[in-house]
Computed example of a mutant assay.
Amino acid sequence: MREQQWNGVRRRVAELDARPSSDKVFGSLRHEWALEDPLADDELAELEAQLGVRLPEDYRDFLTRVGAGGAGPAYGVFPVRRVQGRWRWEGDGADLADLALLARPFPEHGPDPEAVEALLAERPDEEDFDEIEEFDDAAEAWDERWDALMFAPERTAGALVISHLGCAQREWLIISGTHRGTVWSDCRVDDTDLAPLLDDAGTPVTFARWYLDWLDQAEATARRPRTGE
């Protein structure tokens, strides 16, 4: 049953590509409804051997039955490719994930909220400086502290960046730990910590749910007539 959920997905994506109105779907002009070829079983085995971790089951099935990446939520699912003998994910922000940390459990908690709030209160304001150079120096020093607090590699241990929403907002797939197999939103650019995607019932969204819900919504969007038609 688990694998059957991917039956017909490549065909559905191809049918969306053939619809003139499918360009209404957000991100489609970027991924252009193209899907990479699926991974062979031996390629998946090699990938996981290099990573030292088994990927979540529904994501494994997606890679071998649908494609190694391509058309999907937002600007698409980041493809995983072998480059000079090493496997890696490619996309805007894919390098934020430390592949050497994928076997470590994803942290149960992010930075201390009080520490975040205190640092935000110290963010430099240009109006407080007489010289723009002084403000630039202060802002650069503050950014370094912010990055050390919010973007430390340990924050996203056990997770992969799988999609880019634009404006430095991304989504992660948790590979290891108690949240394994769920998708998390990353809006740290907007001063908020990573958070799990939840459905209407408050249940964490799995990779399969994340992708298949997007596909359903994309088909619904493409069926709607354009304004004025």
Score class of each variant (00 low, 15 high):
Asn7Ile: 13
Leu102Pro: 05
Pro38His: 05
Cys167Thr: 09
Asp92His: 06
Gln4Trp: 14
Ala157Asn: 07
Pro105Ser: 08
Asp193Phe: 03
Gln50Ser: 01
Asn7Tyr: 07
Leu173His: 06
Arg2Pro: 14
Val25Gln: 03
Asp143Cys: 10
Ala208Ser: 10
Ser176Val: 00
Arg12Ala: 11
Asp58Gly: 04
Leu149Pro: 02
Asp41Ile: 02
Asp136Asn: 05
Glu131Phe: 11
Pro124Leu: 04
Ala40His: 15
Arg170Met: 15
Trp214Gly: 15
Tyr211Asn: 04
Pro79Arg: 02
Gly72Pro: 00
Pro153Glu: 05
Ser176Met: 08
Leu120Trp: 08
Thr192Cys: 12
Ser176Ala: 09
Pro225Ile: 13
Ala208Asp: 02
Arg209Tyr: 10
Asp37Leu: 14
Leu212Cys: 01
Ile132Arg: 15
Ala100Ser: 02
Pro73Asn: 09
Arg30Met: 11
Arg81Trp: 04
Arg88Ser: 07
Ala100Asp: 08
Val189Thr: 12
Glu127Asn: 13
Ile132Pro: 13
Ala14Gln: 09
Glu46Trp: 04
Asp17Gly: 11
Leu173Thr: 10
Asp41Leu: 13
Arg226Val: 02
Cys187Ser: 12
Gly93Ile: 06
Glu36Lys: 10
Asp37Gln: 15
Asp125Tyr: 11
Ala152Trp: 01
Glu122Lys: 15
Ala103Thr: 10
Pro204Phe: 04
Leu96Phe: 14
Glu15Tyr: 04
Ala68Tyr: 00
Leu160Ala: 06
Asp193Glu: 13
Val183Tyr: 06
Asp193His: 10
Trp172Lys: 09
Thr227Ser: 14
Thr227Pro: 10
Gln217Pro: 07
Leu51Cys: 08
